[in-house]
Amino acid sequence: SEIVVAMYDFQATEAHDLRLERGQEYIILEKNDLHWWRARDKYGSEGYIPSNYVTGKK
Results as ranks from 00 to 15, higher is better:
S1C: 15
S1L: 15
S1K: 13
S1F: 15
S1A: 13
E2G: 08
E2F: 14
E2V: 11
E2S: 09
I3L: 09
I3Y: 09
I3S: 06
V4P: 00
V4C: 10
V5H: 04
V5M: 08
V5Q: 05
V5P: 01
A6N: 03
A6C: 06
A6W: 03
M7L: 15
M7G: 02
M7H: 05
M7N: 07
M7P: 01
Y8G: 04
D9G: 05
D9P: 05
D9M: 05
F10C: 08
F10T: 03
F10E: 00
F10Y: 14
Q11G: 08
Q11M: 13
Q11T: 12
A12E: 07
T13E: 10
T13N: 11
T13A: 11
T13P: 09
E14A: 13
E14S: 15
E14W: 10
A15S: 12
A15H: 11
H16P: 06
H16L: 08
H16R: 13
H16M: 10
H16Y: 11
D17Y: 15
D17W: 15
L18E: 00
L18P: 01
L18R: 01
R19E: 09
R19I: 08
R19P: 14
R19F: 08
L20D: 00
E21I: 14
E21R: 08
E21W: 08
R22T: 09
R22N: 05
R22H: 08
G23T: 03
G23N: 05
G23S: 04
Q24P: 01
Q24A: 10
Q24I: 05
Q24S: 10
Q24R: 07
E25I: 10
E25L: 11
E25H: 08
E25G: 04
E25P: 07
Y26A: 00
Y26F: 03
I28L: 08
I28T: 00
L29V: 08
L29W: 04
L29D: 00
L29C: 05
E30L: 07
E30R: 05
E30S: 10
K31D: 06
K31T: 06
N32H: 12
N32A: 12
N32C: 15
N32K: 13
D33A: 08
D33R: 08
L34F: 10
L34P: 15
L34N: 13
L34I: 12
H35Q: 11
H35C: 15
H35M: 12
H35L: 13
H35I: 13
W36L: 06
W36C: 10
W36Y: 08
W36K: 09
W37C: 04
W37N: 00
W37A: 01
R38F: 15
A39R: 02
A39Q: 01
A39N: 02
A39D: 02
R40C: 06
R40F: 04
R40L: 08
D41T: 02
D41G: 02
D41C: 04
D41Y: 03
D41I: 03
K42Y: 06
K42V: 09
K42Q: 11
Y43W: 12
Y43V: 05
Y43I: 05
Y43Q: 08
G44Q: 04
G44D: 04
G44R: 02
G44Y: 03
G44A: 03
S45V: 13
S45I: 13
S45K: 15
S45M: 14
E46A: 04
E46G: 02
G47H: 02
G47K: 00
G47F: 05
Y48W: 13
Y48C: 14
Y48M: 14
I49R: 00
I49M: 03
I49P: 01
P50L: 05
P50T: 03
P50E: 03
P50G: 03
P50Y: 05
P50A: 04
S51W: 06
S51L: 04
S51Q: 06
N52I: 10
N52S: 15
Y53H: 10
Y53C: 12
Y53D: 02
V54I: 07
T55S: 11
T55E: 12
G56R: 12
G56M: 13
G56C: 13
G56H: 15
K57R: 11
K57A: 11
K57W: 09
K58F: 14
K58A: 13
K58E: 13
